[in-house]
């Protein structure tokens, strides 16, 4: 069978029923609501109703499988399995809630295969998106609907050995800046100060950039600062960094500026003049960095 014939064959399932006259295994009930809330850390609704986002739960077949799926949906999945598209992952879920569900409500449902996509290649592998739409009722009264999309795909061959997650670049530590990184390891942000002219400097340098003096001591930064400037990185993406993210130039209370991340606010909320406070974050095991937390939430 050619690819075109195969696509035509699976496309023919659009509009066919996936479930006819399905019935929830259990009526809506308090123990399942409580277990679900417990697992998800969700507040238990005080009025005894089921959280709306449990909608699909009442239609799930559970461990013993789908006794009530009708032929076409199983057939379609079987055709894809046989063609090597053996893996499945859910990608989209769109739910509408028409009325609250209460313990004792018995849920009935029908579902239709709404669409079968052309062949798509994704990060996971090549396959087909199948969208079903389910309508849920209590008796004859609609209670909600549920559109669900899965990707039925042939798993991509395992990646090459570079499977390990990219790590952030490590700082280059040398005799001119080792004092700074020793401070960071103690959660202290140290600024150099010229012992000749008392000018603070950052980043660390062997000599004073004002008077050229070679002598220096350190001042521990108070941690207060403001965003002096910033950029938002969108492209290109570097390994271990997920754009978009903001890179700020923070002016410390001591008068020097340093490049750092701003935490506690989304990248698009960083603003010039924003008050920030120093904190130390272990960005990955073995790498602690000074970052600046926005003092007021936006």
């Amino acid at each position: 069978m050619s690819d075109a014939e195969f696509q035509e064959r699976i496309k023919a399932y659009e509009g066919r029923s996936a479930v006819v006259g399905g019935v929830g295994r259990d009526p809506v009930n308090s123990p399942m609501i409580r277990h679900w809330c417990e697992a998800l850390g969700h507040p238990v609704p005080v009025d005894g109703t089921a959280p709306a986002t449990m909608l699909q739960v009442w239609t799930m077949a559970g461990l013993s499988g789908h006794g009530d799926r009708s032929g076409p949906y199983d057939e379609l999945l079987g055709i894809l399995d046989a063609a090597g598209f053996t893996a499945v992952v859910a990608t989209d879920c769109e739910q509408e809630y028409l009325r609250p569900l209460r313990p004792g409500d018995r849920i009935a449902f029908d579902a239709v295969i709404e669409s079968v996509s052309p062949r798509k290649t994704t990060k996971l592998g090549t396959g087909y998106f199948i969208t079903t739409r389910m309508d849920l009722r209590r008796g004859t009264e609609p209670v909600g609907s549920h559109r669900f999309r899965i990707l039925k795909y042939a798993p991509a061959p395992p990646q090459k050995p570079q499977k390990t997650a990219a790590k952030r670049p490590r700082p280059v530590i040398n005799r001119d800046n080792s004092g700074f990184w020793e401070g960071v390891s103690r959660h202290e942000l140290l600024i150099q100060r010229c012992t000749d002219c008392a000018t603070p400097r950052f980043p660390w340098l062997p000599g004073c950039d004002r008077c050229g003096g070679q002598g220096w001591d350190t001042v521990r930064a108070s941690g207060s600062g403001t965003v002096y400037s910033y950029v938002v990185m969108h492209h290109p993406p570097f390994p271990a960094f997920a754009p978009p993210y903001a890179v700020a130039l923070v002016e410390l209370a001591e008068g020097v500026r340093m490049v750092a991340n701003v935490s506690g606010v989304p990248y698009d909320k960083v603003r010039i003049g924003m008050a920030v406070e120093l904190e130390f974050t272990e960005v990955e095991p073995g790498l602690t960095l000074p970052v600046f937390r926005a003092k007021e939430e936006v």
Binding site: W36, H42, P51, A52, T53, Y97, P100
Partner: peptide, 22 residues
């Protein structure tokens, strides 16, 4: 899906009624 619902519900309190989650 439940965690997204939890996030909004916790923020708005028990009187909030979810109508759609996509």
């Amino acid at each position: 899906n439940g965690l997204v619902g939890r996030y909004v519900t916790e923020h708005l309190g028990p009187a909030a009624e979810l109508r759609e989650v996509a």
